[in-house]
């Protein structure tokens, strides 16, 4: 099944936000949607998740799937431990025994077992976001939607959480849609980079990130220049 959005249009009153957006999302790869702040990236994600209605266009494959989410904020429930925060979203999907096994497996996978009974207030900002990402991966879904998940983190934590995400995506393959306005995040995490223009938002360019496959820093420099030029236009 193909995951894609086709010819999406969306306006809020007289303000045209999305103007004929079409993107396909390769299976088990990360697609980064890159664009200036406030260009309508979150609106596009909300349309894909079914939170808001589109004016026209099609969302293909995505609505039929279970979707995991990582938000700008960690959205952990303060009065629940790490284990209970994870169990909260798994309850409807899995049986009691499976929930315990899933939580233990994912915490073990990233060596965070010791935090199982911690409450969010006892975790740092970076650790809270790591748990939020882990929660999304533990949820049995085929698509992972991430809306600027590193935005609220300081530079050190951002690096740590990005590495954490890379490690997880290597271990647990998912079709991932990552929205960001940060070029470095897009280059480091996206197999495919979709550059959006400012309002009314259109797809400006789609780039296959060869740096992700090769790891060659030279490609990264070249792609950075190319994307910067696109964003400057």
């Amino acid at each position: 099944m193909e995951y894609a959005v086709k010819n999406i249009y969306k306006s809020f009153g007289p303000l045209k936000v999305l103007d004929d957006i079409s993107i396909t999302f390769p299976k088990n790869k990360t697609t980064c949607i890159l664009g200036p702040s406030g260009c309508g990236k979150t609106t596009l994600l909300n349309i894909m998740a079914g939170i808001i209605e589109k004016d026209a266009g099609e969302v293909l494959g995505i609505h039929k799937q279970d979707i995991s989410f990582v938000f700008q904020e960690d959205r952990l429930i303060e009065w629940k431990s790490v284990r209970d925060n994870m169990a909260f979203i798994l309850k409807k999907k899995l049986k009691k025994k499976e929930i315990e096994e899933t939580i233990d497996r994912f915490l073990r996978l990233v060596n965070l077992q010791e935090y199982k009974h911690y409450y969010p207030r006892n975790l740092s900002g970076g650790m809270r976001q790591r748990i939020s990402i882990l929660r999304a991966f533990a949820y049995p879904s085929s698509i992972l939607i991430m809306d600027e998940p590193f935005k609220s983190l300081d530079i050190n934590n951002k690096r740590i959480v990005m590495e954490f995400f890379k490690e997880l995506i290597e271990l647990e393959r998912r079709t991932c849609i990552l929205v960001t306005h940060n070029l470095e995040e897009a280059l480091d995490l996206g197999h495919k980079i979709v550059i959006l223009s400012d309002k009314p938002t259109r797809v400006k360019k789609v780039i296959e990130n060869i740096y992700m496959e090769s790891g060659d820093e030279g490609y990264k420099v070249q792609l950075r220049k190319e994307i910067e030029a696109e964003l400057m236009e």
């Binding site: 998740a49 939170i51 279970d66 979707i67 995991s68 989410f69 938000f71 904020e73 959205r75 429930i77 629940k80 209970d84 909260f88 979203i89 309850k91 409807k92 949820y139």
Partner: peptide
Amino acid sequence: RKIMEMASLYKVDRLSIIKDI
């Protein structure tokens, strides 16, 4: 509201939302 949105996106049932939130 953001916690509620998270619960609804993960399709958590109403009873759990009442009991746990």
